[in-house]
Simulated scan of single mutants.
Amino acid sequence: MEHRRLGRSGLKVSEISYGNWLTHGSQVEEDAAHACVRAALDAGVTTFDTADVYANTKAESVLGRAIAGQRRESLELATKVYWPTGPGGPNDKGLGRKHIVESAHASLRRLGTDYIDLYQAHRFDHQTPLEETMSAFADLVHQGKVLYLGVSEWTADQITRGAALARELKVPLISNQPQYSMLWRVIEKQVVPASEREGLGQIVWSPMAQGVLSGKYLPGAEPPAGSRATDESGGKDMISRWLRDEVLTAVQNLKPLAEQAGLTMPQLAVAWVLQNPNVASAIVGASKPEQVVDNVAAAGKTLDADLLKAIDEALEGVVTTDPGLTVSPPRI
């Protein structure tokens, strides 16, 4: 496993992060979740990403139990705040001071730790003054409960505004967590340049486009039994946008390119996002330990210019690039 600096900060994260969005506390049993975490640790993963909203707080608790007994200083724990949690009361959501502070304390308890390495605004809150949000985050940093700050799915303008306040408050805003893959490239035109200018790095989610880039979904065929596309409680809605025959046909064109590079399809997808110099880490999830082992093998791989060009040609016409699609919800 190789590590990269996150933005212009002094924090280093593993090129592959382990995330538990659709797995811990919902899709897989706890024993299987622990086995996946152990596989990630054995493979050299040190960065673990979660959020209070995942499985309505259960995912954080599962991760906390899975890493219990590990040397805390050897891990980078990242979690997030914004979406509704708990019973859904009026202050159980958003980026107001009350919700941020209470959520941070609850995340600390669930994760079984005294501090969070990277605390992220899970979306931009249009209903709360940004000054209030950043001030609340700054207080957590100054209290030693949070080491670094990040955001997720913020636009270039929102990142610029947040970074200006972070400098004023003298706190480290160092990362953005966007969706990014061969098929979804909306961050490239605006978000990445703004992040580079402001000193943020990307920790990207869904590098395999919800599993479509694994190549297991075939045009004109029903999704494989037990796959994410058949999961009514988890990923079915998210993956449905990719299950068009023109997309699936284009993805099949990647198979010979992966073979040429000596990579599996998932490894090619993860390695591709890591070719972007502003990307510090790619988040992968897993329901089985062997999936972790396969994905982690993408770390440290270099894809040459000819291969990158061939990938672009194979996917021509099915790639989404519109930066306007990086939009936080207007209301919560």
Rank of each mutant, 00 (worst) to 15 (best):
T264H: 05
L263T: 11
Q275G: 08
V270P: 11
E259A: 14
N278C: 12
P277V: 10
P266C: 13
Q267P: 14
A250Y: 11
A271L: 01
L254W: 01
P277G: 02
E246C: 08
V273M: 01
D245A: 13
S287D: 12
T249N: 00
A269T: 07
A271G: 05
A282F: 10
G262L: 03
P256K: 07
A250F: 03
S287R: 15
L268T: 10
A258G: 03
E246Y: 09
T264D: 00
Q260M: 07
N253T: 08
P256H: 06
A250G: 09
I283S: 11
L243E: 03
L268G: 03
A261Q: 11
E259R: 05
V273I: 04
V251W: 03
D245T: 09
E259H: 08
E259T: 11
K255C: 02
N253V: 06
N253C: 12
L243D: 07
V284H: 08
S281A: 15
P266F: 10
V279W: 02
Q267V: 10
A250P: 02
L248C: 03
A286H: 09
W242A: 12
V251G: 06
A250N: 06
K255W: 05
A269W: 06
G262I: 05
D245P: 07
Q267M: 13
A250S: 10
S281Q: 14
Q252F: 07
A280V: 14
W272L: 01
A286F: 12
L274A: 07
V279C: 10
V284K: 05
L274D: 05
V247W: 00
W272F: 08
G262A: 04
G285V: 07
A258P: 02
N253E: 15
G262H: 03
N276P: 11
N276R: 15
Q252A: 06
A282E: 08
V247K: 09
P256C: 04
Q252S: 14
L257H: 02
V247L: 03
A250K: 13
D245F: 14
W272R: 01
P277C: 05
A269H: 01
N253H: 15
W242S: 02
D245L: 08
P266Q: 12
Q260F: 07
A286R: 05
Q260D: 11
Q267L: 13
V273D: 02
T264G: 10
L243Y: 06
T249K: 14
L274V: 00
K255M: 08
V273P: 03
W242I: 04
Q260T: 11
Q267A: 12
L263M: 02
N278S: 15
A282L: 05
L274G: 07
L248F: 07
V247E: 05
S281T: 15
L257G: 05
P266I: 10
L263N: 04
A250E: 06
A286G: 10
R244N: 14
A280F: 09
L243K: 09
L243R: 14
G262Y: 00
A261N: 00
A258M: 04
A282D: 12
A250M: 04
A282S: 12
T264S: 15
V270F: 08
Q267K: 14
L248P: 01
